[in-house]
Design a binder for these strands. Structure first.
Lengths: 131, 131
DNA sequence: TAGCTGTTATATTATATATATAACAGAAAA
DNA sequence: TTTTCTGTTATATATATAATATAACAGCTA
């Protein structure tokens, strides 16, 4: 597993886990149908509690990234993640708004912000189409 | 005051307050040197505790947006907010990273994300140059 | 002097985060 | 069939954050 957790971070452990799995999917390191470690195995691997892993998994399922099957295991969603709808775009705007307000206050130009975003997109440039 | 707080939001009250003040500065509604209400006045106005307002003010001061003077009051930073340095840009990247990973998983194109960002920038398009 | 300022202190309540154990039901493999 | 593994549920505890409630203090200003 490529997942690393920072115990000193102010970000909750379960949130870090979620972000790294989403990033893994976006990067193409985790492909549709691929199985994820059990809550116990991943907890032991990362040195954290199984309930913390479970919390991340349950939220990821509810957001459409993974599929949990009661006595079988956990899998990257075989159908792929559903494409962004209006509801998601509104949520994204709500999350971007304070970041952009802050950047504007700090005299960052629209182009500078856009270039920084494009740079981050490059990390996920390989595989992954969505369909 | 143009500030509105949502008591039902999952975002902490002090964070909502911070965001709205930063947005006010970015929009140009709050200009350098302008005075903000006292912690008691704003607390009473919004129906929240003065300590919640104080927490927002203290963090805004530490981040360079405002200036607090012990027996005088609170003011939008007269010198303007310091322009983004490398440290800030790294923080911004760290905050954008999970949003972009999520968007990629949802098959959102770089252009679509960029257009959405540009749209948000337009809200702050009027005044505001930096210093 | 009276009223305002941010500040400090103390206490309480509620919620979020994380861990620790234990047990359960059902699928899968020995 | 028994064992092992799966997610799940329950309970308890510890810590941190968020928010409120009072009260008091020091210093500026009217």
């Amino acid at each position: 597993m490529f997942i690393e957790i920072d115990l000193e971070s102010k970000d909750p452990l379960y949130a870090q886990l979620k972000n790294q799995i989403v990033a893994g999917i976006a990067r193409g390191d985790l492909t549709p149908g691929e199985s994820l470690p059990s809550v116990r195995a991943l907890g032991a691997d990362l040195g954290i509690n199984l309930h913390t892993v479970n919390k991340a998994y349950r939220q990821l399922e509810q957001e459409g990234f993974i599929l949990i099957q009661r006595q079988k295991g956990v899998f990257i969603h075989p159908e792929g993640v559903a494409p962004a709808d209006e509801e998601y775009k509104n949520l994204l705007k709500k999350q971007l708004h304070p970041l952009i307000a802050d950047s504007v206050c700090r005299s960052m130009s629209e182009e500078e912000f856009v270039n920084l975003s494009r740079e981050l997109f490059r990390e996920f440039a390989n595989r992954e189409g969505g369909e």
